[in-house]
Nucleic acid binder design. Structure first.
Length: 311
DNA sequence: AAACACCCCAACCGCCACAGT
DNA sequence: TACTGTGGCGGTTGGGGTGTT
């Protein structure tokens, strides 16, 4: 049962924000800081829902937000992180400074999922494809051609049409995908918190939250990446069992038994979900991912992967 | 030039976890 | 313990823009 809307919608502005509203919100937050979103609109003189204010700030007005022009590096990182984290956009965004979860989500939905589905169909090379098509010329045509053309000219059918398209894409993905699965798979039943990700040794972070049903095995989304046997992983958060709380990690040696239960589950449960025939490629993907992170690590001093995710 | 088809992305929605009472 | 308020997340929508026919 969902709770009531955060505020009465009556009399509140909706839709696109005006420059004036942006200014009001920005000035208020600059003066008083973030938080107290519910009361913020009133105090700031905005006829907006607090949620709307928060979203506008987080996704658009916040300083240091990068907009547009996802670089090839970011693109690649998104794909890799998504393969590990699934649709955990906020976590992925935390790994991409200046990018918002919404932007990454949109980018994934509009660019990457299509591209990957095309790759899955044995089409062109992804990079070639991307470079030759940005911003979406040839690709648009390609993707449009593989779409189900139930011609609907009625504008009311637009969204239905889109849904059909998306369903079609989802089907293609589920059939052809090589990199990820769309939905995380729960593999354990113990409670897990989103904020306790990637560093089991430090209960770092308290801002995030995790739904109990979000207990997931990331790896199960990556054709069984969940548990990579890596001998030397230079990040504290991973080395001791990875994201135990989120049911993800890497078996190193005997694993970490500080939380006993988790690795026991992982050893038994996760590995039993690993596709046995593709182990080398899984390790390769893990290694690639860590190489990428290493490269980043040399540029930016981070205490741990966990901390970077929680930035 | 007009109509149509499609894409992009800002914004909205519903749900959940957690904290406070 | 039960309830309520809040912040946050992921999924979805739809207006506007762009390309094609």
């Amino acid at each position: 049962m969902g709770r009531a809307p955060c505020c009465s919608k009556v009399g509140l502005h909706r839709g696109p924000w005006t420059p004036r509203e942006d200014t009001l919100l920005t000035k208020y937050i600059q003066a008083h800081g973030e938080g107290h979103w519910r009361s913020l609109p009133k105090k700031a003189g905005l006829l907006r829902c607090g949620k709307s204010c928060r979203l506008r700030w987080m996704n658009y007005l916040r300083p240091n937000i990068k907009r547009g022009n996802i670089t090839p590096d970011e693109d690649d990182l998104i794909i890799r992180l998504h393969s590990l984290l699934g649709n955990r956009w906020s976590l992925i965004a935390g790994r991409l400074p200046g990018r918002t979860d919404n932007e990454i989500k949109n980018y994934w939905n509009t660019h990457l999922s299509k591209r990957l589905s095309i790759i899955g169909q044995g089409s062109t090379d992804p990079d070639t494809d991307k470079k030759s098509t940005e911003p979406g010329h040839e690709l648009k045509r390609k993707t449009s051609k593989i779409k189900n053309k139930n011609s609907n000219t009625n504008k009311n059918n637009k969204s239905n049409n889109r849904k059909m398209k998306n369903k079609g894409m989802a089907n293609i993905q589920s059939e052809k995908q090589k990199v990820h699965l769309p939905k995380p798979t729960r593999i354990a039943s113990f409670p897990i918190r989103r904020n306790e990700s990637f560093d089991c040794s430090t209960n770092s972070g308290s801002s995030g939250q995790e739904r109990s049903e979000d207990v997931q095995c990331f790896g199960s989304k990556v054709e069984g990446i969940p548990w990579c046997h890596l001998e030397d992983v230079p990040w504290n958060g991973f080395k001791d069992g990875g994201d135990q709380e989120n049911g993800v990690g890497f078996l190193i040696g005997g694993g970490d038994h500080r939380h006993g239960l988790v690795n026991n589950v992982s050893d038994f449960d996760l590995q039993s979900h690993l596709p046995t025939g593709d182990h080398n490629s899984l390790e390769k993907l893990c290694e690639e991912y860590f190489e990428l992170l290493k490269a980043e690590e040399s540029q930016v001093e981070l205490d741990s992967f966990a901390e970077s995710l929680l930035l």
